[in-house]
């Protein structure tokens, strides 16, 4: 089972290593991980997607919480959260296929951000399933290159996950 956790960490050198090292040492699997600064530059926020049952997830949360540079760990319930991922995909395109690709892009409310005689770069934002679905549709044209950010996630409503109280 897949779980998403948000981790607020001190923005210091080596913190990412501590976290990734903990996952490998304890045998936890990271599905995806994304990191960025928070509004307060002293802290970063990581969104980590973990595979495992509830016992594994509980250990992940507890072990992460023990790291001195980790300020807060929150499990994000997928039902209660919004999740987004961004991908940019370079697809083979020529005059025969270009319009068909553009139609698909439009259906997915994605965008074309680069055009050349033999390829297009498409930008898509959405939850994991949407990105997967677009990827699937574009595969027939030949995906030359793809970069995905891994997901970021946030609880709906006024509840917040942040460093302070």
């Amino acid at each position: 089972m897949k779980h998403t956790i948000a981790v607020i960490v001190e923005n210091k050198p080596g913190v990412l290593t501590r976290i990734s090292g903990l996952f490998s040492r304890r045998g936890f699997n990271i599905e995806s991980l994304s990191v960025g600064a928070t509004d307060n530059p002293a802290y970063s926020r990581m969104t980590i997607s973990v595979e495992g049952d509830d016992v594994v997830l509980e250990q992940v949360v507890k072990q992460l919480s023990k790291l001195i540079n980790v300020i807060r760990v929150s499990r994000l319930d997928p039902e209660e959260s919004v999740e987004r991922e961004l991908a940019i995909i370079k697809v083979s395109a020529n005059k025969d296929t270009r319009s068909e690709i553009m139609q698909i892009v439009s259906v997915f409310r994605a965008r074309i951000i680069d055009v050349s005689p033999r390829s297009l770069i498409i930008e898509v934002t959405g939850d994991e399933k949407k990105v997967d679905a677009l990827q699937q549709m574009l595969r027939q044209f030949g995906i030359k290159e793809m970069a995905r950010t891994g997901k970021v996630s946030m609880v709906r409503g006024s509840k917040v996950v942040q460093a302070g109280p």
């Binding site: 080596g14 290593t17 090292g21 903990l22 040492r25 001195i68």
Partner: peptide
């Protein structure tokens, strides 16, 4: 040594 001892220390500093 901070890299080497990361998994065997409670915390470490450079």
């Amino acid at each position: 040594i901070t890299g080497i001892t990361m998994p065997i220390t409670k915390h470490n500093y450079l």
